[in-house]
């Protein structure tokens, strides 16, 4: 796998230079931001951006035209002609002609497509959006991407949907991005979702996490859901949990979805919406 590190004043510039060094297009590479860099204040504290660019499938792609084919349905999936403007690049001379292609990648399950985008494309767009937000908030973070297998959504609930990628932000001093009970993270995710929706017509497919907060919270919620379910079965009385954002309510629903003697439902509006656990 061919991979280079590139330093430059901004991430965009580093990407441009790296692509031209590799003679590759944006679609051919994975870009990992090692350091988003900082413009500094009045030139003080300015820091270069550092990225790692890895050639994905050398020689293969540009992306094939999408044949109309039955697709698994992921919520708002709606085909939309490329509304995402790629980084404009001058035509690249094919450098590295003598480059030996590495062995073909191992066979992978067919990547799900959402609204005409595959998971990697959604992840790339998401990464651009979150970096744009963070840069303007003067927040430095490393991005860690985690891809998830698609999950069946619980039917009628109009809660948030299953994400395909989590972008975990790692850095010093990011507690403000989580906020009290994760409220700041919920707002960050909301703005992020709106921008992603505008760009890709998808919703909630890319999840933002901060320092693994959601992952820890998820473990706690699943535990809580199971404990409360046991209690409901013992007392035969429904239990209502405290208000939670859509994403967390969904985790509770999912945790108890397969429970033979328990059902769950959400009640209330907006900030006050709560999950109630019932005996079946």
């Amino acid at each position: 796998m061919q991979s280079i590190d590139q330093q430059a004043r901004t991430v965009d510039e580093a990407v441009r230079i790296a692509l031209s060094r590799l003679g590759r297009n944006y679609e051919d590479v994975d870009i990992e931001v090692l350091n988003p860099g900082s413009p500094g204040v009045l030139g003080v504290g300015a820091e270069d951006a550092l990225i790692r660019v890895t050639v994905r499938i050398p020689g293969m792609r540009p992306r094939p035209p999408m044949p109309p084919q039955p697709q698994p349905y992921y919520g708002m999936a709606r085909p939309l002609p490329g509304s995402y403007n790629q980084v404009p690049l001058p035509p690249q001379p094919m450098l590295g002609m003598g480059y030996n292609p590495p062995p073909p990648p191992p066979p992978q399950p067919i990547a799900p497509r959402v609204g005409g985008y595959d998971v990697q494309e959604l992840a790339n767009i998401g990464r651009d959006v979150i970096l744009n937000l963070l840069r303007r908030m003067r927040i430095q973070a490393r991005l860690q991407l985690e891809f998830h297998p698609p999950v069946e959504d619980p039917g009628s609930e109009e809660e948030s949907q299953s994400p395909l990628v989590t972008i975990n932000l790692i850095g010093n001093d990011l507690a403000a991005l989580i906020g009290r009970r994760g409220e700041a993270l919920t707002d960050l995710q909301y703005i992020f979702n709106l921008i992603m929706n505008k760009k890709t017509r998808t919703w909630g497919k890319v999840l933002i996490d901060v320092e693994g907060y959601r992952a820890r919270r998820k473990a706690n919620l699943v535990n809580l859901a199971r404990r409360m379910a046991d209690q409901v079965l013992t007392t035969r009385q429904p239990i209502t949990l405290e208000p939670m954002p859509a994403y967390e309510r969904r985790l509770v629903h999912l945790a108890l979805l397969d429970h033979p003697y328990i059902r769950t439902e959400s009640f209330g509006d907006g900030e006050e919406r709560k999950v109630t656990i019932f005996p079946k």
Partner: peptide
Amino acid sequence: KQGKIAKAMRTLLTIAAARE
């Protein structure tokens, strides 16, 4: 709806401002 987007923008703005 009910100022939800404005509220979320304010949250991010508050975080950015606090850093200064």
